[in-house]
Nucleic acid binder design. Structure first.
Lengths: 215, 215
DNA sequence: CCTACCGATCGGTAGG
DNA sequence: CCTACCGATCGGTAGG
């Protein structure tokens, strides 16, 4: 009894309260600024206020931590970008909602260093290994999704038949990525204005006269 | 005399033959793959076959090495991209020559990890300090150059007056950067085909009927 | 340009 | 989840 009282009288504040999610939240922010290599077990454990080995036990290797961080970031990305867009009706409106949500996600700096995938895909694009493959998988899924949204806007008749889904997916991704990059580098939303305008112009080229472009 | 003979009988191969340029050439390649932080004095000196401190003496700090590497990469970029383009006449043809030369520089992998500035601007865009500022200066110069080339193509009458130089500079840079990024990530020139096609289409939107687009 | 070092930090392990 | 440790590597220095 006294022993129990003594130990409960010195409750180490919130130790043991670290969920995997809280760890990964911090890991994503650190990685968006310093990269997945610059994300060290030392700095991450210090930021969370626990020991290196305590944190390490959650994962098993740095590579596993990197993989888990990429997967967690994909979930955040999907929630931020697709979450609001599913309410928009299929077709051009949903395409616009996704592109708009993406640029909002960039502008709001959901991750401290801007778009997580812009940072880490540039970091790992000329490396080898499972982390690179994981990032590539995320990017492929994103590009296929953009192409599918363009295809659906053609099927609904809002975009003309000359619109090439793969080509336009490449272009929209390029413009948003450059918007993010310019926003981070220049600390000025001007680049995001350029990106939105370019996407709007490109949609106008293919949209039927009655179609409403909402970006 | 015998002493001199002994020492010259064991000539350490090519020690002392390292010019600053040779060091920076290797530094640019390493940085394009591993980043300017992943460019360590240890790996660089090992790749060159000299001692850490021997290499270090050339610079004085890691930051100075990073700054020198960025400046050296800018010179290579200028030589590769603007070198061939100055032969093209001012106006649309020179704009096309620069964009074409840029995509060639990306495709030829002049740096092992693809476009040097794509790698390091993503790495440093959310950091602070002189290296970030140096990279920003390079990117600003590049964007201003693209805008100037568009302006000259308007002045020559080949591009219509609705062409917005800053907006188009943003778009061309976005498309080329995404071409590089996709090329590195997917190891497939498809992205560069998309980039070239998008640039061509965008130029067509503003070009006068008689103007020749050479990309 | 070299050898020989410095303290700090890296990813990871032992043992609890 | 912790303390205590490992060998390797980091950027950098002393002295030549």
């Amino acid at each position: 009894m006294p022993l129990a009282m003594i130990s409960s009288a010195a409750p180490k504040p919130r130790k043991g309260a670290f969920t995997r999610d809280a760890v990964l939240r911090e890991a994503m922010d650190l990685a968006s600024v310093k990269g997945l290599e610059g994300l060290t077990i030392g700095t991450l454990s210090e930021a969370l206020g626990l020991s290196k080995s305590g944190l390490f036990a959650h994962f098993g290797s740095k590579e596993e931590l990197q993989l888990a961080t990429v997967q967690a970031a994909q979930k955040v990305f999907n929630a931020e970008v697709f979450g609001p867009a599913v309410r928009a009706p299929k077709g051009l409106k949903r395409l616009c909602a996704v592109l708009d949500g993406w640029l909002d996600y960039v502008e709001q700096e959901i991750f401290r260093g801007g778009c997580f995938f812009a940072s880490v895909s540039a970091e790992f694009d000329s490396r080898e290994g499972p982390v690179r493959e994981e990032i590539l998988g995320c990017m492929d899924l994103w590009m296929e999704t953009l192409a599918r949204l363009v295809r659906e806007a053609k099927e609904s008749g809002e975009l003309g038949r000359h619109a090439d889904p793969e080509q336009l997916a490449f272009e929209f991704n390029a413009l948003g990525m450059a918007g993010n990059s310019g926003f981070q580098l220049r600390r000025d939303p001007k680049s995001l204005v350029f990106a939105r305008r370019a996407i709007r112009e490109r949609l106008k080229t293919f949209a039927q006269p009655y179609a409403r472009i909402t970006i």
